[in-house]
Write a protein that binds this DNA or RNA. Structure first.
Lengths: 268, 268
DNA sequence: TAAATGTTGTCACAAAAATAACAACACACA
DNA sequence: TGTGTGTTGTTATTTTTGTGACAACATTTA
């Protein structure tokens, strides 16, 4: 096959099936069988490009995975179970493994050595939107006294608001953002800074922001310059790190409160 | 490593994590990190047995999979995302791939070449409990006139009864089984054969049975002698196959109806 | 019928890719 | 200076992919 043979589609589907536990050949054979019902080994070979001699062993594996059936004729003929059933079946065994793994892993996790003393001196890089949101939620819920946060409204509304409503009402919350369109949670001050957008206007759906919990924990979320999906965050309880952001917060706050561009609203 | 090193547990968990997309090393390192929070590369190496030099590249992969975070200290320290989140995250990406795959596969399946003419001459081996039950249900639902079935009550109650209740009432159903404890579906005759158990008493929870649909399709379910889980079935629309079982059915039926051991009940 | 031809299922093993393991080295830090 | 870290590159080992040979049959042809 000369030329570029540009088959991003084919590549993608192969990748997908790989993560369902199929090898390249298994994927190709299964796809061939979907196209031609009751194909022989030779036909499968012709359609899929998998070497004829390899078809048999590959089929064996697929039969064990319960996504291919076999006839008793000569030549043997093979048929694929419908894709929805196949995917469901494969996902099922994966789910099983996941549950099994989760059991064992949870045990390990519970009996782990706690070095939380030292932990607080480190600055942790967290990657992955989901991870970051989870860490953020965890940190917010742990708040005892006060939370300072600075972030765009879109992100607050999307990922934060529910958590904020659920905070213990004894926790004072100070928020700096660009707009506010919902009910303001109890014990909360909101500083509306309309030019917020100008500061990081580049990215439409920015998740970036700073979160300071009880003057002890800081989570700093940063957009990646290139890839929107690849957000990263820093989390720390270290004195220096927290202190820097506290100072930063105070500075910004003082300026904003005296600016004409700023509007202050609160839950009272 | 001499000696047996008998670690079935460790093997199992490794297999499980493998189907979640982790390699052996990735699994080992992640498990080590669960045990010791904020471990260094060397500590990970000591706990997991993974060569120290490999730890770094393995960690990189785990970070990309969003199940490990990293500190900015020297030496670098690493921490694991809690197992429930990690498994959820891994399952999530797999689910994504599954959906993507299902899309493409469904397309292939819909545009497949239909060779249903020839298909009916084959006898298909179907493996996997789920597959078999699905095929059975499909066949039953397709019934237009009559269904003959012979199977143990446990299996009927467990996997068949709902389908039977939902059959079109114009379909006549004849059942041979060992007992009947629920309402009898409409247009149905049940032949109770109390010594049914003696015939295949070996297996407690037997799924084996014969199903004849419209005198055209036969599904024969067989228990595997050794492994209960590894049931297999034959399905065919071929004349010879169907005929054999029709004859068999008639023979058995005639005998049973005149036997003192048999009790006949019906929905009328 | 017998020889020639073609197809199927199986096996053994070669080639390539992915993982795993090791060795070497530059660098930091005490 | 010496110990331990982080990085790189090279070498096994394992898994997957690919090839060729072959016996068992079936089909054609003479």
């Amino acid at each position: 096959m000369p030329m570029g043979e540009y088959q991003p589609e084919s590549e993608r589907i192969n990748e997908s099936l790989k993560s369902l536990g199929l090898t390249k050949y298994e994927a190709l054979v299964y796809m061939a069988l979907l196209q031609v019902e009751g194909a022989t080994a030779t036909e499968i070979h012709e359609i899929s490009g998998v070497p004829r001699a390899s078809v048999y062993s590959v089929i064996d594996k697929l039969i064990h995975k319960n996504i291919v059936n076999i006839s008793n004729t000569t030549p043997k003929r093979f048929s694929a179970v419908p894709p929805d059933e196949a995917v469901r079946s494969l996902m099922g065994t994966i789910k099983n493994d996941a549950d099994l793994a989760l059991n064992v892993l949870s045990n390990l996790y519970e009996t782990r050595q706690n070095r939380s003393e030292g932990r607080q001196e480190f600055i942790w890089s967290i990657s992955g939107q989901e991870n970051i949101k989870l860490k953020l939620k965890e940190a917010l819920i742990s708040a005892a006294k006060e939370v300072f946060l600075m972030s765009k409204w879109d992100f607050i509304e999307d990922s934060l608001l529910n958590t904020l409503y659920e905070l213990n009402s004894s926790v004072r919350v100070e928020i700096v953002t660009d707009k506010w369109e919902k009910k303001i949670p109890s014990n909360t001050n909101v500083l509306l800074l309309k030019e917020f957008n100008k500061c990081n206007a580049k990215i439409a759906n920015s998740a970036s922001g700073v979160y300071i919990i009880d003057k002890k924990k800081v989570l700093l979320i940063m957009d990646s310059e290139s890839d929107e999906a690849d957000t990263s965050a820093l989390y720390s309880e270290s004195y220096g790190f927290v202190n820097f952001f506290l100072t930063y917060w105070n500075f910004v706050n003082r300026h904003l409160k005296h600016s004409h561009e700023t509007e202050i609203i609160s839950s009272d």
